[in-house]
Simulated assay, not measured.
Amino acid sequence: MMSEKKNVLKDKSFGFAIRVINLYKYLTATKNEYVLSKQLLRSGTAVGALVRESQNAESKADFIHKLAVAQKECDESIYWIELLFQTDCLSSTEYESINNEATEILKIIRSIIITTKNKS
């Protein structure tokens, strides 16, 4: 279940979590935005945690399940990022950058889930 793609996902999801934490600090300090940013903090950091959990899965089904939950958290993060942008908390440059990163992670997770299911 450990592939090179998996390590890429682990690194990208960890980097995304750091970026989300820094964005949360920025939004609370400069925009006084606490509600949407807190939701993003929760879902954005959950992605990497679930990816890590999946590495210690008890079975292929458990592996797929953990990544499926990570997929949901990643998609939720994209939702909060879109809301932050639409409510003028993020500039279009900030939005595009973090949204592209989240979308890339989402595609990797989906790809791993599909590949793992097809190998079953």
Rank of each mutant, 00 (worst) to 15 (best):
E96K: 13
T116A: 15
S77L: 03
I114E: 14
D62I: 09
T93S: 07
K60C: 06
Q71A: 13
A46N: 00
A17E: 06
L106Q: 08
I108A: 09
L50T: 01
K60T: 08
K6M: 10
E101A: 15
S54I: 11
N22M: 11
D88I: 05
N99M: 03
I109C: 07
N100C: 08
K107I: 02
V8W: 12
R52F: 05
W80G: 01
K38D: 03
M2Q: 06
S92D: 10
S3C: 05
I98T: 12
V35S: 11
Y79F: 06
T93I: 02
T115N: 13
V35A: 10
S37E: 03
T115R: 13
K6W: 14
I98K: 13
V20S: 05
N22H: 15
R19P: 02
N22I: 03
K107W: 06
L83D: 10
I81D: 03
Q86E: 15
A29W: 05
L23P: 00
W80P: 01
D62Y: 14
R42L: 01
S97C: 12
G48K: 12
V20M: 11
K12A: 06
I114N: 08
E76Y: 00
K119F: 10
N32E: 10
I105C: 11
N100E: 13
S97W: 14
Y95A: 07
L50G: 05
A17C: 07
E104C: 00
L67D: 05
K117Q: 03
R19Y: 15
V8N: 10
C89A: 10
E4T: 02
L83P: 01
Y79I: 02
V51M: 06
A102Y: 10
E104H: 03
I108Q: 08
K12L: 14
E82W: 04
K72A: 10
E73P: 09
D11N: 14
E73H: 07
S37V: 02
E96N: 12
K25P: 02
D75S: 09
V51D: 00
M1A: 15
K38G: 00
Y26Q: 14
A102E: 09
F85Q: 11
F85D: 04
S37M: 01
L9K: 07
S92L: 12
E101Q: 15
H65D: 14
L23S: 10
I78W: 02
C89D: 11
